[in-house]
Design a protein around this nucleic acid. Sequence first.
DNA 1: CATGCCATGTAAGGCGTTACATGATTTC
DNA 2: GAAATCATGTAACGCCTTACATGGCATG
Lengths: 186, 186
Amino acid sequence: MLINYAILRLLSAEPMSGYDLKKIMQESLYMYWSGNNNQIYKALLQLCSDDLLTSEIHHQDGAPTKKLYKITDKGRAALLEWVVSTPPEAPEFKKPFLIQMACAGQLEAAQIEELVLKYQHELNLQLIMQQEKQRRMNVAPSLAKRERFIEDMIFDNIFTFYQSELQWTQKVLQGIRNNFREESQR
Amino acid sequence: MLINYAILRLLSAEPMSGYDLKKIMQESLYMYWSGNNNQIYKALLQLCSDDLLTSEIHHQDGAPTKKLYKITDKGRAALLEWVVSTPPEAPEFKKPFLIQMACAGQLEAAQIEELVLKYQHELNLQLIMQQEKQRRMNVAPSLAKRERFIEDMIFDNIFTFYQSELQWTQKVLQGIRNNFREESQR
DNA sequence: CATGCCATGTAAGGCGTTACATGATTTC
DNA sequence: GAAATCATGTAACGCCTTACATGGCATG
């Protein structure tokens, strides 16, 4: 399960509780599990029983008791092994909007335009939210050069994803205005 | 459920059987259900009981009996209503490769490069497959100008998705070569 | 004679989400 | 006094996939 490796990755940086992991995943741009503790707590149990993690109970006063999870040497080895030996998968996407577009032949030009504009708006919102997440996340100050580069590349990937989708909406809008000018000018 | 509207859309062009729908969805670039008859047959039953479709049993000699589904006026109205009144959603993506990348700080430059090259290769394969699908699908010869335009835009969307991902891999590879030159030249 | 296509359907199970339960502490 | 945060966990459900069951016809 991929989420197990995502957790191992996070714990390879520093020990954390399940709750911490949940928050980080909620804020993450590419860990796409939308802050879902159910899966996290189950995964943690499994990883512990596989000896990839150890858990330590931390009593705190003025706050609930928590379990601190640490990655083991076996865990680090498993993560490394996974990274180098897993064949990279092509990305998946779900674009419900394309299904809407596919139905748009029935509509008037102005209606299609309106739809695309709404989509554009939604994309802009999303893009701003992602940038905001990225901004909030930057607390780790002194990463190694390599780590920094990788972080940047990951952000760039997500950023250009939305950018190119936005560019596509521009192309569509222009196409509508050029091809269906007669109608939309009336 | 979105798949219901995808089915309505397909049946709005011409009557079909569940099996036909399954095949089309398998070949579709943006209907992302990977040819899954389970959902299709269930959806068809539901759509029938909602009077959005009618089904007609067709006996064929030399082939199994099939059920031909036709969209009703109510079905067309529901589809149109859905298209114009559903707020467009931002696309979702899952890129397991980014999780792999996030772990790559541990690796040597050459290993990262290898990983990215493999990803690039996988993307190229995928892109070719999608183009092949698109080529095979083009049997509908004389679409209206508007329909043609929409079809083209949808294909363009998917095409540029892979293209921009490929461009990203180029950027990453260059970055590795520039930033970690010392190591990778050894 | 095995494989594959046409055609309909069912079963099992994994992945993922929302929501709930509990309970203490802090903040408005 | 209400709401948010910290913290762990469970329950219920929906979506989606793979695989299976059936059976006739065609193709190699």
